[in-house]
Design a protein around this nucleic acid. Structure first.
Lengths: 301, 301
DNA sequence: TTGAAAGCGTTACCAA
DNA sequence: TTGGTAACGCTTTCAA
């Protein structure tokens, strides 16, 4: 009859807020947009209220946010790590010691600190690179992120594995590391590469924005895609499918990733006795990515 | 010394949660992504905690979310209306009667129910249309949203005003209304239009995704942009600047919009005695948009 | 200035 | 089963 209980008082009495905290580095990127969308989706299905906060890709901010979450009595925290080297690992180790229910999504700062759910980027990059090799590409350049970031390491490992035993094999020269990993980075690095006179016949980018930048750069210089230069991206967001030459990419299956994440955290929350602490096994659950082949890499050899 | 107050208990005792609720129809779109980003930004600056919820473009969900917000004792609610006709106006009128601090952002369901901050879409569309006319276009087609949505009405009004007194003047035939207003809608409608044999020399779309769809459709049919067909979009998100022919668009100045919104709501919250109710003036604050001219509309006549 | 006590709106427990 | 009461962790008020 029109009565709604006060959730705040409920929270106090029950000692649980029914809230889940999610930190993302950036909300304007389509990749994180999808993450927010699906985490919200699965969180509400499990009757959690989602509290979103944006770290602006700064770990200092991320940690401030986590402290706020804790003060707010969130029942669990999902951390989508910033794209940078780990700053203050001790902070997360302290969370672990206090048995705070938290987990990493899409990447991790260090293994064993907390459970993690992410795409199998090593295997995914191997798939993409393998596809480019199968198209006859022999000089593949890889537009990556900063070298000391987890996702970069995993991807480079996949790249290297795919090239191992090939002629020519892997060389560091093929790695072009970008700090902002955005459209402009992809465009600029590609222009620089193509003008340098190096024998590039393929560019693999770690996200679709950068791949689109590469495509436009090639187009500007009059280089034909895919015949002179094959291009592939990653994430399968709108940028790859709506390019004037649709871009080959990798679908990380974000929906599944978020489903597994929320379930995993939910389990940790509801079984306080089994809550993992230092010394316990903290699984990294890898979600299988799917290769999406489009025109940007299909050469008619 | 390591002590953090329990915000829930604080909330109960102080009778204020320090939280602001924000509902958006969709988080994967870059337009709403920007809105979330800036509302979060300004809300945190004013020491509010942002609670985000996604209505999935359904008003029923939106209303469920608002009820939850209320139970959670949020101090104010920002509603970014769904892209559809108003379903249950009585719900919002009830909020008004109860003097709930809430406001509309980027559109409104009806004037006078709550304050609103949004871009001046009428003037913006007039600017865009005027620009296309100045480029010599005489048969401009307008890819709009559903006809009974506030933003569509305002835009069509601007379109009509810009064309009034011209030869040929405004005709309903020039309005192509789209329900999903996404890339595929833009692409499909443009293909249909260009194949119909109608003498189109310009397409104006209500967002950049649709404009990109129009550009790609024209490209597929071998129609040269901008000389045979000029194209313009709206919102100035990444889709327009990264198209292989950069697309003319309208910047809605979302940052400013969100700043004004948060300040406005903050004022309403902090002055409970002046809280507006039925019969009070509820201003619609219009933010001035900026025309961004790019290649897709610059004809060399 | 300091400290003790009374709420805030619920839930949970225990006695009847 | 049903009430009545303590407790949740903090703020606020009022008296000392």
């Amino acid at each position: 009859m029109g009565y709604t209980p006060n959730r705040i008082a409920q929270g106090l009495a029950r000692r649980k807020s029914g809230a889940l905290g999610l930190v993302v580095p950036d909300i304007e990127s389509m990749f994180y947009g999808k993450i927010v969308r699906y985490v919200d989706d699965f969180a509400s299905r499990s009757d959690y209220q989602l509290i979103l906060a944006i770290s602006n890709d700064r770990q200092e901010t991320e940690q401030k946010i986590i402290r706020k979450f804790l003060a707010q009595q969130v029942e669990g925290i999902i951390i989508t790590p910033v794209n940078g080297p780990v700053q203050n690992l001790a902070f997360y180790q302290e969370l672990q010691r206090q048995k705070v229910p938290f987990a990493f999504l899409s990447s991790y700062y260090a293994q064993g600190i907390a459970p993690c759910v992410m795409a199998d980027l090593r295997q995914g990059t191997q798939l993409l690179t393998g596809h480019l090799l199968a198209q006859g590409c022999r000089n593949i350049y890889f537009l990556t992120g900063l070298p000391d970031v987890t996702t970069t390491l995993l991807r480079v490992e996949g790249f290297r594995q795919a090239l191992s035993g090939r002629q020519p094999g892997f060389s560091d020269r093929q790695l072009l590391s970008c700090s902002r990993v955005d459209y402009a980075d992809g465009y600029d690095q590609t222009i620089k590469l193509l003008r340098s006179g190096q024998p590039a016949d393929a560019i693999l980018a770690i996200n679709d924005e950068m791949a689109l930048g590469a495509l436009n750069a090639a187009n500007c210089l009059g280089i034909r895609v895919p015949d002179q230069l094959a291009i592939a991206g990653c994430d399968n967001v709108l940028f790859s499918s709506t390019a004037f030459i649709p871009i080959t990419t990798l679908d990380q299956n974000i929906a599944e990733m978020c489903r597994v994440m929320v379930n995993c955290l939910d389990e940790i929350i509801s079984q306080p006795e089994k809550r993992p602490g230092p010394g316990d096994i903290m699984p990294v659950r890898l979600i299988e990515p799917v290769l999406i082949v489009r025109n940007s890499s299909q050469r008619r050899i």
